[in-house]
């Protein structure tokens, strides 16, 4: 099974890297870019076939290490769900 953890900065947390990327897009001539926020995606290959159990495991991984709840939120997908 494959889990995908999508990690985003919480709203209210400034994202200077996203802002710099927005500025660069504008400098390249792309108009109408109202905002850019940068996050990260972590892909995890898992043993087992129980999607529910996998989701619980990955949730614990996210809380323990993958995301920092002070600044980040996350979503988990198991096999695209």
């Amino acid at each position: 099974m494959k889990a995908v953890v999508k990690i985003r900065l919480k709203s209210g947390v400034l994202d200077p890297q996203g802002k710099a990327t927005q500025n660069a897009l504008e400098a390249l001539g792309f108009s109408g870019v109202n905002g850019v926020r940068q996050g990260k995606i972590i892909e995890i290959e898992l043993e087992g076939t129980d999607a529910g159990a996998a989701r619980e495991d990955v949730d614990r991984m996210a809380q323990a290490l993958l995301a920092n709840s002070v600044i980040e939120s996350y979503e988990i997908e198991i096999d695209g769900q």
Partner: peptide, 17 residues
């Protein structure tokens, strides 16, 4: 220490990058 939660908050990338 922030990551271990002995202290609150987090240290992020400098605003200037």
């Amino acid at each position: 220490l922030c990551e271990t939660r002995l202290l609150p908050g987090a240290l992020m990338r400098n605003a200037s990058l």
